[in-house]
Simulated assay, not measured.
Amino acid sequence: MSDEADCGTDLVVAELSGLVFEATARLRARFNAAAAELGLPPAQALVLVNLSGPAPMRRLADWLSCEPSNVTGIVDGLERRGLVTRRPAPGDRRVKHVVLTEAGEERRDQLRSRSHALTKTFFALPGPDQEHLRDLLARVLSDAPPDGDTR
């Protein structure tokens, strides 16, 4: 490939990266708006929306890309709201699992619904364009090396 072609490809990759980051920022803003409508800080909302079964605090820290010590405060806030409870892990009582309460399940469903409604307006493209974008993103993600791998 010529230097000119490399330069063109590099420009397209830079544009794609910028567009994906901008799209991510806008989607995050919509999610945060849905969380705010329900009186939830973004970190609590992320835990709530990702929690589908008992999960150890370490997994929550991985979802949030933060230290486990930060998760304690987030879970404390959700627990004060009556949305989660902590239970000892069956195999290791030192490990605490975070579990949604019935109120937490209801709030999670509300959050997902509101977030979906706001996201739907973001992707307001004709059906075939939505499907094409979905397929392209799925292909990029399936072909991408794992995080940290620089293949």
Rank of each mutant, 00 (worst) to 15 (best):
R94W: 00
Q44C: 14
R151F: 12
R94D: 03
L51N: 05
L64P: 00
L141V: 09
V47L: 11
D149N: 05
F122A: 12
G148I: 03
L136R: 14
L125M: 10
P128C: 02
V75D: 02
L38W: 10
S52W: 14
A124K: 06
L48G: 05
C66L: 12
D109W: 07
A61F: 01
L16R: 11
E22A: 15
L46R: 15
A34N: 01
T121E: 14
T85S: 11
W63E: 02
R93T: 08
R81D: 00
D92Y: 02
A5T: 10
L78W: 00
L136I: 07
G73C: 02
P126M: 03
S17Y: 13
A117Y: 04
A103E: 10
L111D: 03
S69K: 14
E79V: 00
R26C: 02
R114F: 07
R107Q: 14
P146A: 04
A89V: 02
A33V: 06
A61K: 00
P41I: 12
D143K: 13
D149E: 11
E105S: 14
L11E: 09
C7A: 14
D147Q: 10
R30W: 01
T119F: 15
P88T: 06
A117N: 05
A61T: 00
L141W: 09
A33G: 08
N32C: 09
G8D: 07
P90E: 12
V140W: 10
M57L: 13
D147M: 09
R87E: 12
P54G: 15
S52P: 00
R134P: 01
T121R: 15
L137G: 02
R151N: 10
D109H: 11
P56H: 06
A43D: 10
V95H: 00
P126W: 03
D76V: 06
A43N: 10
P128H: 13
G77M: 03
L78M: 00
T150Q: 10
L111C: 06
T119W: 15
S115I: 03
L48Y: 05
K120G: 03
P88S: 13
D149A: 11
V99Y: 05
A33I: 03
D147I: 10
Q130R: 15
L137E: 02
G148N: 04
M57C: 04
L133K: 00
P128G: 01
A144Y: 05
T119P: 03
R134D: 06
L133A: 14
D62M: 12
A117E: 11
N32F: 11
S52H: 15
A45R: 10
L136C: 09
